[in-house]
Nucleic acid binder design. Sequence first.
DNA 1: GTGAAAGCGCTAACAT
DNA 2: ATGTTAGCGCTTTCAC
Lengths: 323, 323
Amino acid sequence: MVDVAREAGVALRTVSRVVNGDATVGDKLAERIRQAIDRLGYQPDERARQLRSGRTGTIGAAVRHIADAHPVLRAVDETARGLGLTVVAMSTEDDPVREREAVMSMCRRRMDGIIIEPIADGHQYLQPEIDSGLAVVAFDRPATGVSVDTVLSDNRGGIELAFGHLAAQGHRRIGYIGDDERIHTGQQRAAAFRDCLRRTGVALDGMVHPGPIEPGRIGAALDALRAGPEPATAIVTGNHMSTIEVIRALGPDFGSTALVGFDDFGLADLLRPGVTVVAQGDREIGRTAIELFRERLAEPARPVRTVIVATTLITRGSGEIAP
Amino acid sequence: MVDVAREAGVALRTVSRVVNGDATVGDKLAERIRQAIDRLGYQPDERARQLRSGRTGTIGAAVRHIADAHPVLRAVDETARGLGLTVVAMSTEDDPVREREAVMSMCRRRMDGIIIEPIADGHQYLQPEIDSGLAVVAFDRPATGVSVDTVLSDNRGGIELAFGHLAAQGHRRIGYIGDDERIHTGQQRAAAFRDCLRRTGVALDGMVHPGPIEPGRIGAALDALRAGPEPATAIVTGNHMSTIEVIRALGPDFGSTALVGFDDFGLADLLRPGVTVVAQGDREIGRTAIELFRERLAEPARPVRTVIVATTLITRGSGEIAP
DNA sequence: GTGAAAGCGCTAACAT
DNA sequence: ATGTTAGCGCTTTCAC
């Protein structure tokens, strides 16, 4: 910048004014400075600018996999862009240690706020940062140990949608295979599913299979559901990874057992049959996260809010197989 | 930091030493400072640190879709992490304007280097940054207008692999549907495919269909291939989006025409038949990109290198259908 | 409308 | 082994 000032024969401050679009600079001077900037290929140093001005205009997103399909992240990115905010994403890889590393690295960069898909069990470490003005929004799962704005899917409603859809077609023995119950969504969905079974008066024995998403575990759960005198005629899965692993494990049998998956996924329409799913409102979740974020920045003392986003059923064939 | 120094009753510089793990601080003192840091919840300001020290330890990745499955990005991220570098990814959405915005924003943050999946036609604007020390590595497609280190897939070899596989099974009439030839990979792959046809003495008329990936265009290309007295019995696609759209367009006919896709994609094994593909060496590409990046940083004046990464055939069924 | 000085939070280069 | 001084590149404050 000092070079630009020398080149244009003005004071440092005047260059700064032009760079920031300050109108209080004479037209001729401004033009001369702009030419000097181009000639020197000058780019303002964002770090120095942020350091001095305090704000960063940047929001960090700590999500499970930066490199996976992540519709919520995309919605966050698009919404933020429209507001002139920059989104910087980091992967947590479902690892509490990496989550904390990512979040801390965001704090060290003094981001205005972070949007986080929580994994770890305790997020107490965020409290000091929140106290000093960091805006935090959790999505998909609630953060624990701190009170922050949160956007969640209607897990219970989604399971009821899936279960009801299958029951309406006459299925009586409906099984569930989903995520580990130590994970919030896994717990919520398994619990909601048990309630559905109870409500229809079906015994729970061996019908609900939460656990880690591993081929062996999924295969065993499937075997258990299909064994015995009264095998399950329909299956509800707890997230898109469960759905895919169940289809993989079913192999050629996919299509003979009814299946409704939680979470939509790419190519769900290309499988045969197409996969009927309960889709989460990804765009709505992303949009809401940014909205909560901005409200928090505008009014830091505002009471914490939790928003629940509805799910919808998308029928494609696999959920419309008769008992 | 000044607060920490006061709290511990030492000079600023000593706190800085402890934060940076400088060994030249007495054990007792270091411990006292660490306690003060914890008590105050102090986090060093990364911006100030970078501003002063010059280095950022950060590498920017400008890729097509941050939120899509992107195996190369994942490999880049993992490799970089192992080296203590931070990767910050931004989406270009295949838009030259956004690409330039993303890259410029990285320059303003004074990143040590950028890894870019080029879209735009002219990357001359990078020259001044390169001259002032920015390390740039292109992957998937070469950058134009500047000379930078590059990692590419063996597009020609991949097409030959796909074509040869189908020809070996007796297919004579093999068609191609792929990306627009204005895109580098689209051009390379279509050209390689034409050469394959010529070599086997088959007329090219109506067998090669490059163009935008849109359902209408793909459907028309497919109709053209299957029309006439001698319809194509096998199809090679030019990238994973083409593959998916072709399968979608084939509908129930998928499985009657042989198909080999360029690019592997998630769930390719779950379709029926499974999709035979020519897979790119994503991990290898990512690893190589970081390697070139580091070599460039170590030796800025080194001549520019281009590395070609091999492809492999993965047979899953769709490519093993008889003529 | 423009310029000079001060300082954001930190580290490099010297003292001591 | 610890403290002092200077300054990274910019914006803010206040004077002209």
